[in-house]
């Protein structure tokens, strides 16, 4: 089946490698290509992992949207109130109480956000852990083919950043959109009252948190897998 000529060509073609022959590399471009392929080919797994991020970030942005909208409304009302009662010097009764209540509400919201982020972080970690574990054999194979530990980590790093970015983008838009709709239904013209610069900052922070969470969740298990001796990684049954 093997033609002698063909075999000869194959075994000759290494002579002109020259300097290249002395290295082991995984260029970022190739790594990105492989990671992208991993995400698209395992879309189901990627979506489960992504869903955790989407939900967590959606909740976060919805809370922040509500905060910005509420502040916008309060500021608007305050402006109209001062316009109406410009010459009234007395402070409206109950302002102190309202302020205290506002503070309590903010504290409650912070608590909710922290809790929900922790829950989604656990979810993401679990999902990432699964996705690394089911690829132990693949990791072992790559190491047999000459991959260094950091190549494996690099692949998972890119993958989790991509997943984290897409997941938190979708989550941020979702959470923001839904909460905005709720406020529009409650009070028309709320969009004009909101501080959009502030909102954008919040959305960017949410994106950052989402990417950070998925990184933190994926890289430690990937590192652990990368450091396993290939024989052990290959022997794992999933």
């Amino acid at each position: 089946m093997i033609k002698g000529e063909l075999a000869k060509r194959i075994y000759k073609s290494d002579t002109d490698w020259g300097q290249v022959q002395r290295q082991i590399t995984l260029p970022w471009g190739q790594a990105a290509r492989i990671s992208y392929r991993n995400v698209t080919m395992r879309l189901g797994r990627a979506m489960i992992t992504g869903a955790g991020i989407v939900l967590g970030i959606a909740f976060l942005t919805s809370v922040w949207t509500s905060k910005v909208a509420q502040e916008g409304i309060t500021a608007y009302e305050a402006r109209s109130a001062t316009a109406i009662s410009a010459d009234e010097t007395a402070i409206a009764p109950g302002a102190e109480e309202a302020k205290a209540e506002e503070q309590a509400r903010a504290a409650r919201q912070t608590w909710l956000v922290v809790m929900s982020l922790m829950v989604s972080a656990v979810g993401i970690t679990n999902s990432m852990l699964m996705s690394v574990t089911e690829r132990f054999r693949e990791i072992g194979t790559m190491k047999c083919l000459g991959a260094l530990d950091e190549f494996i980590v690099r692949l998972f790093l890119i993958e989790s950043v991509v997943l984290g970015f897409i997941g938190s983008l979708v989550g941020a838009l979702l959470g923001h959109g839904i909460m905005l709709l709720v406020y529009v239904a409650k009070q028309s013209g709320v969009a004009a009252m909101m501080d959009w610069g502030q909102m954008l900052v919040y959305i960017l922070i949410a994106l950052g948190i989402g990417i950070f969470l998925s990184l933190v969740a994926a890289v430690p298990p990937a590192m652990r897998a990368a450091q396993m001796p290939p024989a052990a990684a290959l022997a794992t049954e999933v």
């Binding site: 290249v20 022959q21 290295q23 590399t25 995984l26 190739q30 492989i34 392929r37 000459g146």
Partner: peptide, 17 residues
């Protein structure tokens, strides 16, 4: 599993630069 036959064969060549 996510790579084609050709990509599987070329993977070690990527590492070899």
């Amino acid at each position: 599993p996510v790579m084609t036959a050709l990509e599987n064969v070329t993977l070690p060549m990527i590492f070899a630069g």
